[in-house]
Simulated assay, not measured.
Amino acid sequence: MKKTNIKRFFVLFCVLACVFSMTACTNTISSDSAKTSLKDMKVNQYASDMVQWAEDMLVYLDQTSDAQIKADGEAAKTLSYVNGKVYVVNMQGMNDKTIEFYNSWVKTREDLGALKSIDKEDVRVSDETGTLCTIAINATYETRTCAFELVIDDDFNLDSGAINPTYTTGEKMEKAVLNTVLGMGTVFIVLIFISYIISLLQHVNKIGAKKQTAEAPQQTAPAPVVEEPEDEEEDDCELVAVITAAIAASEGTAADGLVVRSIRKVGRQNNWK
């Protein structure tokens, strides 16, 4: 009887564990689905307003000078402030991402020319956390077409903006060749400069050798002048000692009481006299 109860308890425990596991999985899936559904609802509700904001933004950038765009960015003037319309995007005010988008446009507008038409708009719901959707717009300009990608975050602020002009294969090859030439030219210029510096080092060695040659005689020339008086003084001392000893022997006195004050050479004829 006890074994039967233990088996029943074990089976009941396993069933309860499976139920709780399925409940946890169901909660996770429903939570993710709720987030996706919320994004879909927001995009469906505000898609037209976001597309209108993107189109008006392209028109504003095309019809406004670079200086005015810079001034509006520094003054934190949103598109709503400039044209008086109300948009759901950037309702909280100008942000850094919008200013970055302005700067990218100023660098690119010379390659595009004037705006001719806006051809296609598409709003795609984002799968990334923190971003709501991506507005893709294809526009035609005087010189070429251009694709814009504007990413909107969950708070309806511009998260990032990309400007992708369409270049032909020939233009891409031309840019690639130009970049290669500039890179190789820079390397060769640096190598030539290094070679020139190395060639100058030879002249430095020659100048150093000339200085050493010029200084060598000045160091050895004074040596004989200093040594000659020392030899003469040593000879005089020896001569004084000999003369003192000779006089003391001839006089029969001690050498300590004799003082030689000067020595003078006398000719041989005077000595014989």
Rank of each mutant, 00 (worst) to 15 (best):
A139Q: 02
P165V: 11
E121M: 01
G170K: 01
A162H: 11
N164P: 00
G170I: 04
A139F: 01
D111A: 09
Y141S: 00
F156N: 13
D159W: 12
E149S: 14
N95K: 09
G93C: 07
K175C: 01
V123P: 08
T98E: 11
V125S: 03
T131D: 14
I99E: 09
M173C: 00
E121G: 01
T145M: 13
K120Q: 11
L178P: 01
K120E: 08
A176G: 00
D159R: 01
L158D: 04
A176K: 02
N103M: 05
T134R: 08
V88E: 04
C133E: 09
T180M: 08
A139G: 10
S126M: 08
D122S: 07
P165S: 06
G130E: 03
S160D: 14
K172W: 07
I163A: 08
Y102R: 05
F148M: 08
G161S: 04
F101V: 01
T166C: 02
M91A: 13
E174W: 02
A147I: 02
T180S: 08
M91D: 13
D153F: 03
A162E: 12
V89C: 03
R109T: 13
W105H: 06
D96W: 07
R144Q: 15
S126F: 10
K175P: 00
L150C: 05
W105G: 03
E128M: 06
M91F: 06
E121P: 00
T180R: 03
V125A: 08
V123A: 11
R144M: 13
N138L: 09
E128R: 09
I99F: 15
K172I: 13
P165K: 11
N90Y: 02
V177W: 06
G113E: 01
E110V: 12
A176Y: 04
N179L: 12
E171I: 03
F156L: 07
E142K: 01
I163C: 07
N103R: 14
G113Q: 05
T140L: 14
A136S: 14
C146R: 03
T140I: 03
N103T: 07
M94K: 05
E100V: 06
I163H: 10
V151C: 06
N95R: 01
K107H: 09
K120I: 12
L150T: 09
N95D: 01
C146G: 07
D153M: 02
T168S: 15
M94I: 13
P165N: 13
N164L: 08
K97S: 15
E142L: 00
R109Y: 06
K116Y: 01
A114R: 01
Y102G: 08
D111M: 06
G113L: 10
R124G: 00
V89S: 04
A147R: 15
I135A: 03
G130Q: 12
